[in-house]
Amino acid sequence: MTSAPMGQLIDAAGREHRPAEGPVRIVSLVPSLTELLCDLGLTGQLVGRTGFCVHPREALRAVPKVGGTKDVKLDAVRALAPTHLIVNIDENRRETVEELAASVPVVVVTHPCAPQDNLALCELFGGLFRCSGEALRLQAALRGALDEARALRAELPAEDVLYLIWREPWMTVARDTYISACLAEVGWRTVPASAAARYPEVDWRAAEIRGAAGVLLSSEPYRFTARHLPEVEALGGRPAQLIDGEMCSWYGSRAVAGLRYLAALRRRLAVRGLNSPEV
């Protein structure tokens, strides 16, 4: 996402929006952005969410669920009579969004591809939902986290790492994903360097994989645990480390904590080695 011209509110589909007027009823089909809406002070305007929208947990208990990110219950959304629908290009099905667009007045399409894209996202939501003060505070925190990550990147030499998201088949992330962009902010380059798919299968025999400094095992979407570490180390011939997947893949307001988590993890592993038992 890129910043819109001053005063314009343009989403990832290129659609221009106007600041909301009157009562606002939001249905969010994106877990990361549900969290962002709450952090912007909009919990009271949130009338629907997916079952994967779990943060902040207590604040969302009373907000009705409308299915998953891919299997949205269309009638449940319509019954909530939302004024605004929040969707994401990667996380929601296009046909679902198109069907709901016929009955929801405002559909906001998002597609952050790197941590800095969250600055424009905050600007869009802040202007659209008239909460610019909260958005500016989040932007300032994000700029600080980006500065900290880049300082670390300048301090430590870059390292190649394999980031696992699935087992049987073993799968990783391409460099054009948000996850890879987050890791790059602290100097971790994901392998392979190029791939035809965004989430390619792992060839454990490939020179890039064997030459990586280590393997990072994510907690989502597959929930890797400590019992998987010996198996992965045997396959890859490299040390393996568990990593919090939410801190790498959730955008919106989570990017602030995510970048600081990654910077702290990289600094610790630079001292203790990639196979440190701590996460």
Score class of each variant (00 low, 15 high):
107 V>H: 04
213 A>H: 05
253 S>R: 07
210 R>N: 11
204 W>K: 13
249 S>R: 09
56 P>T: 13
113 C>W: 02
43 T>I: 10
67 G>Q: 08
108 V>W: 02
201 E>R: 15
259 L>H: 03
57 R>V: 05
176 D>Q: 12
13 A>F: 02
81 A>Q: 12
202 V>T: 06
130 R>C: 09
232 V>N: 00
210 R>Q: 14
146 L>R: 01
231 E>P: 03
182 C>E: 09
279 V>G: 06
251 Y>V: 09
260 R>C: 10
79 A>L: 13
46 L>D: 05
51 G>I: 07
130 R>Q: 12
176 D>N: 14
193 A>W: 00
159 E>C: 05
76 A>V: 10
2 T>G: 14
228 H>K: 01
180 S>Y: 00
248 C>E: 03
147 D>L: 03
38 C>T: 09
211 G>R: 13
99 E>R: 15
197 A>F: 13
73 K>Y: 08
35 E>S: 08
200 P>G: 09
230 P>E: 03
162 L>A: 07
120 A>Q: 09
154 A>E: 13
135 A>C: 10
139 Q>L: 07
76 A>Q: 14
241 Q>F: 13
83 T>I: 12
111 H>K: 13
183 L>G: 01
274 L>G: 03
160 D>C: 09
26 I>D: 00
94 R>Q: 11
127 G>C: 12
53 C>T: 01
276 S>A: 15
139 Q>P: 03
37 L>Q: 00
245 G>T: 04
115 P>H: 02
30 V>L: 14
109 V>A: 07
167 R>V: 08
169 P>C: 12
97 V>K: 06
20 A>R: 11
111 H>A: 14
16 E>G: 11
184 A>P: 00
51 G>E: 11
175 R>V: 03
94 R>F: 03
15 R>A: 11
224 F>Y: 13
194 S>G: 07
153 R>G: 07
255 A>S: 15
68 G>K: 00
4 A>N: 13
26 I>L: 08
256 V>G: 11
63 V>M: 12
108 V>R: 05
8 Q>K: 14
46 L>Y: 01
3 S>H: 15
196 A>N: 10
262 L>M: 13
5 P>V: 12
10 I>E: 07
271 V>D: 08
170 W>K: 05
178 Y>P: 06
5 P>Y: 08
161 V>K: 01
5 P>I: 08
